[in-house]
């Protein structure tokens, strides 16, 4: 029999080893599944790599997909650090898109240097307020934030639906649920290749958050805030304020992700921007074990996987659902792999 034993110290330099090992394991199982369908498994693996990382254009695709995911994950990670179980990034993303669109539609004639900051301000406020509601509900009425953020996700998406099917519908869209295309001033251009300037925003937000959490007292209290209201008694900030703060931070970050989607990649608001980034962000944040500096890697990895799987569909006619199966397997094995960082199996005597 084997027994589980906790390591004295976490496995040194183990993280890369574990990630690679877990990836290898889950990809191995996926290949078995491919082979069971009569598809060439090694070629499948190559296609996955080829579609996600092997070319400049595929790297661009992956980065573009990782950008909104990254911003949402940052916000989610900060909230989870405080043990605030905010699963509302999806709704905050929607509200951010709505806020930015409101500014873009109402002030189309402003020059870009004024309009873009205004759009981001509106997106931040909309996303932030949408996140503040569950915070207040929790603090004032003791409403569990998992349920309120989840419900607000549905409501936020329906609000977006209402706007694009109703008041904001483009009169020239032949009745389809789209807003007018934004004026050029409201659209963020490309920086390098097809990657837009939004990546700078990602870098700035990531850096600012890392510095804030590591170097400021408030940040330190958030990091320690996981211990809950009891520990916060010794802090100089009221616990309630910190809960509100992390929620708003998440709302702003997710809101900005939403505004980047409408402003940089689509140039208008439409229901299909809701691609589930807010939920995937939870996975990314936890895979990174809530460490701000690790989030970029996992966001990039997951985005790459989603992009690469399309290649598999196209070349091998593997159904879309197969991507979900593989992703689930990868997540589960990375998760199980992290176990070996802190534990090991030992042969038990007797």
């Amino acid at each position: 029999m084997l027994r589980v034993v906790k390591r004295q110290e976490p496995l040194k330099g183990g993280t890369p080893l574990i990630v690679v090992g877990a990836l290898a394991l889950s990809l191995g199982i996926s290949m078995l599944l491919l082979a069971a369908q009569g598809k060439p498994a090694p070629r499948g693996l190559f296609l996955l790599w080829d579609g996600a990382f092997a070319h400049v254009h595929s790297l661009e695709d992956t980065v573009l997909k990782a950008i909104p995911l990254y911003l949402c994950s940052l916000g989610v990670a900060v909230a989870f650090r405080m043990q605030v179980w905010n699963i509302g990034a999806e709704g905050q993303f929607a509200l951010g898109a709505i806020g930015a669109t409101w500014a873009a539609l109402h002030f189309p004639d402003l020059p870009a240097p004024l309009l873009l900051p205004l759009m981001f301000a509106c997106a931040g406020v909309a996303g932030g307020v949408w996140a503040l509601v569950p915070a207040l509900l929790r603090l004032r009425l003791r409403v569990n934030e998992i349920i309120s953020t989840l419900m607000l996700n549905y409501i936020g998406i329906l609000l977006l639906d209402y706007l694009v099917y109703g008041p904001w519908k483009d009169p020239t869209s032949f009745g389809f649920p789209l807003t007018r295309e934004f004026s050029p001033a409201a659209q963020i251009g490309r920086m390098i290749g097809r990657i837009h300037w939004g990546i700078l925003l990602c870098a700035a937000v990531g850096l600012a958050l890392a510095v804030f959490l590591k170097r400021t007292r408030t940040g330190f209290e958030i990091m320690a805030g996981g211990a809950g209201a009891r520990a916060a008694r010794y802090a100089h900030m009221p616990y309630g304020f910190l809960v509100g703060l992390v929620m708003v931070l998440c709302g702003v970050a997710s809101g900005w992700a939403g505004s980047l989607e409408v402003s940089a990649t689509l140039g208008r608001l439409q229901p299909s921007i809701m691609a589930g980034y807010g939920y995937t962000a939870i996975v990314v944040a936890w895979l990174a074990r809530l460490r701000i500096t690790h989030i970029a890697f996992y966001a990039f990895l997951l985005a790459g996987f989603r992009v690469g799987v399309e290649n598999l569909q196209l070349e091998l006619q593997v159904p879309h659902a197969f991507g979900g199966i593989m992703e689930g397997l990868i997540l589960l094995s990375v998760l199980a792999g992290q176990f070996f960082q802190n534990y090991r199996f030992r042969r038990a005597e007797g």
Partner: peptide, 19 residues
């Protein structure tokens, strides 16, 4: 495997829906 319950649950949803 002492995995995080949130990630494992979300992974299960992705996996189950796909399967």
């Amino acid at each position: 495997f002492q995995g995080n319950q949130v990630v494992s649950g979300l992974a299960l949803t992705i996996f189950g829906v796909g399967l």
